[in-house]
Each structure stands twice: as C-alpha cells, then as structure tokens.
C-alpha cells in the first residue's frame, strides 16, 4: 500500500484549513458568541493573503496578512454584535456575504497569478517512520502550527484562569457580569481570535492548498468549519478528529470517482453535513444537556448600568 501515505498526506492538507478555522470559531462560541461569518472571513483572508504574498513576494507575509484581514472583518462583526448588540445570526450572515464580495474585488487583479510553493518541513527521525512519517511529518509549516494551536487552545480553555473566565462569559453572561468579569472585552478578544484563525485558514487555501486565487475558492469550507464546531460539541480534541474526518471525506469523494466506486460524488460531498446532523441527533438522544454549546450562545448582551 504505497498509496496510503500519499492519501493520508492529502487528507492532512485538506483538514488543516478546516481545523484552523473551526478552532477559531470554537473559541468564539465558547465565549457565547455565534459568528456565522467564518466563510466570509476565510475568503477575505484568502484574497488578502494571496495579494500580499504576490506584492511582497513572501508567502509568510501573505499568511500574516490573511490572518490580519480576517481579524479586521471580525472587528466589524464585534462592533455590531458586541458594541451594538445586534442579532448575531443576521450579522454573521451579512459578514459572509460582504466577505465574498469584498474578496472578489480585492483579488480581481491577482486572478491567475502563480505562486511558488512553501517547502515542506521534514522532521528528523519522525519523518522516516514508514507510512506515518511521509504522511504527517513531511508537511507544510502551517500543519505543525495547527497541531500546536489545538494544544494551546485546549490548555488555555481548560487549564487557565483566562480560559475559565471565557467559558464563564459564554455559559452565563449575566452572572459573569455580576461577578465583575468584563464580558464584552473577553468576547471581543475571542471574536478577534476567531477572525485571525479564519483569515489564516483562508490564506492557507490560496497560498499552500492551491497556490492560486480564484473568486469563491473557499467553496463552503467556512460552513464545514461551523458544522465541525457543532460536531465537536465543546471538545477541542473531538474538533481535531472531526476536522480529519471531514477532510478525509472531501478526499474520499474524488478517490471514489477515480477508483470507480459506484457511489455518486454528490452524496459523498454532502456527507460532512449528514454526519453533523447525526452527531447532533446522537447528542440529543443520549440525554446529555443540549448539544454541548455554551449557555449564552448567540444571545446579545447588554450590560445593566
């Protein structure tokens, strides 16, 4: 099976942007905010990241610019949803639509320009392990970053005071406020982190995944990231497993075609969403409280003065 490590490596590349974007949204939702603008922030990150990389001829600067652009868009969301306590669902959807249009505009002069690849980093010793080595330890730098981010987010959320405060804000913003926790400031930071991650994930798509800018290139990955957060039901590790599962499905979809398996590819591309619904169903039936979502998720917060 010399195909296996190659397929695994393809899955890694497909899963990394999903994981990064979902990780950002996970933190946002832990803080009790629902930002449906992931797709919009992602594509703006892809466009700005690519544009910056072409202009400066540096993929690293491009990735940074992508993250920064996502953060700027997230700031718009924060201004509306936190500052003015607007409806988060409507604001998030508007952000996605705005992002898709904005990205097309920013990216227009850069359509069809080539970018050199970012060389993969082979970890010594580990990369020589059969199958696993070539699959996971000869990857691009952002893949390693994504794994470190998972560890960092899990640690901060579960083991630090900052994480505790963030979860408290998400669980019940009124109580947190009564205890003197700065609800809106914490939510702002969480939203900015979410934007940074979504923008980085977008720049990963245009600079590493395809090395190409084209309008609409995120192709629903932002929504898959949102589905992933639901799927993970509050657990960072399940989020990571889910990202690889969903990434695997997108790869499997094409293998099914080329390998001439009788399943229609449309069904396979719908599988991540079907699995999300199944996960919700399992969570609901198993009787545990709700879907693992934060208690104040999606509710606008207006402090009493």
């Amino acid at each position: 099976m010399e195909m296996l490590p190659l397929v695994l490596a393809s899955i890694t590349v497909a899963a990394t942007p999903l994981l990064i974007a979902a990780l950002g949204e996970h933190v946002v939702e832990r803080a009790g905010v629902l930002n449906l603008g992931v797709e919009g922030m992602m594509i703006v990150g892809a466009a700005c990241g690519f544009a910056a990389a072409v202009l400066t001829d540096s993929s690293v600067l491009g990735l940074l610019a992508g993250g920064f652009a996502g953060m700027l868009l997230a700031l718009v969301f924060a201004g509306l949803a936190i500052g003015l306590a607007t409806n988060q669902v409507a604001t998030g959807l508007a952000l996605t639509i705005l992002g898709l249009g904005l990205a097309g505009l920013i990216g227009a002069p850069f359509v069809g320009q080539p970018r050199p690849p970012i060389p993969p980093i082979a970890l010594p010793i580990l990369s020589d392990i059969p199958i696993i080595g070539p699959a996971f330890f000869r990857a691009d730098p952002i893949f390693y970053l994504s794994v470190m981010l998972v560890i960092a987010v899990a640690f901060v959320l579960n083991r630090t005071r900052a994480g505790l405060l963030l979860r408290a804000v998400g669980e019940n913003h009124a109580s947190a406020h009564a205890l003197g926790v700065p609800v809106r400031r914490i939510r702002l930071y969480a939203i900015l982190f979410g934007g940074l991650m979504a923008g980085l994930a977008g720049a990963y798509l245009s600079l590493i995944y395809t090395r190409f800018w084209s309008p609409g290139m995120t192709a629903g990955r932002g929504w898959i990231a949102l589905a992933l957060v639901v799927f993970a039901a509050g657990h960072v590790w399940r989020l990571m497993a889910g990202a690889y599962l969903f990434g695997g499905l997108t790869v499997a979809q094409l293998h099914a075609q080329a390998g001439a398996i009788g399943l229609p590819s449309q069904l396979l591309s719908a599988l991540p969403y079907i699995m999300t619904i199944l996960a919700l169903l399992v969570l609901a039936v198993s009787g545990r409280r709700g879907s693992g979502a934060a208690g104040s998720l999606g509710q606008p917060f207006v402090p009493e003065r």
Binding site: M3, L6, V7, S10, A14, L205, Y209, T210, F212, S214, M217, A219, T250, V251, L254, H255, Q257, A258, G259
Partner: peptide, 16 residues
C-alpha cells in the same frame, strides 16, 4: 474553472 477542486482532483489521480 475551480482551481482548488481541479488541484484536488489532480492530487487524487497522483495518489492513485
């Protein structure tokens, strides 16, 4: 014209 999808398809073929 969908560079990410086209690239994915090419990758799949090479993997196979």
């Amino acid at each position: 014209f969908n560079p990410p999808k086209e690239g994915d398809a090419a990758k799949t073929l090479i993997d196979q």
